[in-house]
């Protein structure tokens, strides 16, 4: 369970250590990619709780979402339309939805555990 969090911390550390130089012009697209990555991450976590986890969907979703989001933002810039806002909106909404589901699953899991504990205690008595 702690392995993914350790992976995140290592990723943060490596990203900080590498200090990849990215031209300011592409920083915006990178931000969109980050948003897509976060969305995929939370989506993955959510799928674990829903017991629908699929590694292929997660990985393809991660790369395609990030790339597509960045490309969309770039295309929007070329067309003079703030298309990246659409990506921000879509990913943002999904992020909060996923977070809400995760929260609910965690709460229900915690409540189930407590109930099980109580029943166990009751049966012990």
């Amino acid at each position: 369970m702690w392995v993914p969090i350790v992976g995140l911390l290592i990723g943060l550390f490596i990203g900080w250590a590498l200090n990849i130089p990215i031209p300011g012009v592409y920083a915006k697209y990178l931000s969109i990619a980050v948003l897509a990555a976060l969305d995929s991450s939370f989506g993955g976590v959510k799928s674990i709780f829903e017991e629908k986890f699929n590694a292929a969907i997660l990985l393809t979703g991660f790369f395609s979402n990030a790339l597509l989001a960045a490309l969309l933002a770039y295309l929007g810039d070329q067309l003079g339309v703030d298309l990246y806002l659409a990506a921000v909106f879509a990913f943002g909404v999904r992020l909060f939805q996923n977070l809400a589901i995760i929260r609910r699953e965690l709460l229900s899991g915690w409540a189930k555990k407590r109930r099980a504990l109580k029943e166990k205690r009751d049966s012990d008595e």
Binding site: M1, P4, G11, G15, I22, G24, A27, V34, A37
Partner: peptide, 29 residues
């Protein structure tokens, strides 16, 4: 359990790299 741990770890690892890079790039911006 192992089934989801590795892919998610990879995804979070990538996300971490991207996040830091984006923050640094934005600071540069």
């Amino acid at each position: 359990m192992r089934n989801w741990q590795l892919p998610l770890t990879f995804v979070l690892f990538m996300t971490g790299i991207l996040l830091v890079s984006a923050i640094e790039a934005l600071q540069g911006q």
